[in-house]
Design a protein around this nucleic acid. Sequence first.
DNA 1: TGCAGCTATTGCGCATTGCACAGTACTGTG
DNA 2: CACAGTACTGTGCAATGCGCAATAGCTGCA
Lengths: 109, 109
Amino acid sequence: MDSSQLLKGVLDLAVLAVLDGRDSYGYDVVRRLREAGLDDVGDASVYGTLRRLFKAGALTSYVVASDEGPHRKYYGLNDVGRSLLSDSARTWTSFAATMDGLLKEVGAG
Amino acid sequence: MDSSQLLKGVLDLAVLAVLDGRDSYGYDVVRRLREAGLDDVGDASVYGTLRRLFKAGALTSYVVASDEGPHRKYYGLNDVGRSLLSDSARTWTSFAATMDGLLKEVGAG
DNA sequence: TGCAGCTATTGCGCATTGCACAGTACTGTG
DNA sequence: CACAGTACTGTGCAATGCGCAATAGCTGCA
């Protein structure tokens, strides 16, 4: 099954959720999302999402040097990002409930 | 909130679910999805989805005359559609669980 | 020195898909 | 006839996830 379309509009939320509580950088966000179960999320998608959220004013950003490789561009939630996160989470929860309702009747009709 | 992006990749599933157990036509599918809670699903999206699913071989189709207006193009699930429905439902359920897992930690860090 | 491999980011172009909008057409009511 | 409700089609756009290539720093090995 190709679940890539399911990510549409939800990747923002997933990234915001991962960033909540602790700043992180692209490569690490990808890793954490995959560990969380989003197995085949593409790296370019995550980097794109981070840039988009930053451009939208939801994230702060700063560069940190690393001993283990090139510099890392850290991102963190600001007030806009936190409020976006809680709004999106609410929207997702209600949407998921609606879908579950639709699916509940499957095979019962 | 704009939930239109959330529909991406899920509208197929929603349409298949509505069609499960009883054949229906575009205009009616729109009505049933809206009643189910997908308030602002666009009619063109549903018609497009029906055509796409039909073209993919998941639906049967036949035209029925109506007393209350123009003809209705009915769609129904065939074997391919039913198996697509159960596969998609499984994929959705597991995806939703993953997202819930990600969101559970929000605000707890 | 040179090469491989992991880490880390950017940019380009494509495919999918939901939607707005316009157009067509049938039925019934005033 | 005008208008509203029903019902479908087609066009073109916008959003966004992804593959792929390029760039670049670091470690370890020969």
